[in-house]
Simulated scan of single mutants.
Amino acid sequence: MAIITVTIWKEHCPDAPSPQAPITYHPSPDVKHGDKVVFLLRGYKADTVATVTFPDAATSRACFTDPGPFELKPFSLVPPHRTVSPHASKGLHTFEVSIETRPPQDAHSPPADRKNGGIDVSSDPRGEVRP
């Protein structure tokens, strides 16, 4: 089992590795069944909440065993992680991150920021799971 870190960066964050990469993957976006994927939110204020949604989450080809959606906070002591499902189909599983920096009672406003990314499952379903 490998651990992959997905970091969502605020635009113009001085700590970001590249201003052209609002989402970074370490070591890469490629995963295999059974891998753990950890999501981090960096460069945002403490009251920011991001929601990560996978469009294929409600289908049998869902990328993760717990498909979400799930929330991220910039200073979480235990960042959310997901396990790549043994039944996830091979290929790119896109996700959307909606970032909210406004008070929760203002639910009719659009998100303050939105980013898109993807996790690439590089093995076929029901294949060998990494030990």
Rank of each mutant, 00 (worst) to 15 (best):
I119D: 00
H33P: 05
H108N: 14
S60A: 10
R61F: 14
E100C: 10
E96I: 07
V78N: 11
T53M: 02
S76K: 04
G91W: 01
G91E: 04
D47P: 07
D120E: 14
D30L: 02
I4M: 10
L77V: 14
D15V: 11
S76G: 13
I4C: 09
H12F: 15
S28L: 02
D113V: 11
S76L: 09
Y25I: 06
S28A: 13
T83N: 05
A57Q: 09
P22F: 02
H26L: 13
E100T: 12
A21N: 09
E71R: 09
P86S: 08
A21F: 08
E71M: 10
V52N: 01
P27Q: 03
P29M: 02
V97G: 12
P79S: 03
S18T: 03
D15W: 14
Y25H: 14
P74H: 04
S123I: 04
H108W: 11
T65C: 13
T83Y: 07
T51H: 07
R42A: 12
G127E: 02
V78H: 15
L77Q: 11
T101D: 13
D120P: 02
T24C: 10
P80S: 10
T94A: 11
G117P: 03
E100R: 07
H87D: 13
P131Q: 14
R82M: 10
R82H: 04
L92K: 12
Q105I: 10
P79K: 02
I4T: 15
A88F: 00
L77G: 14
F39T: 01
R126M: 11
P69M: 02
H33A: 09
A50Q: 01
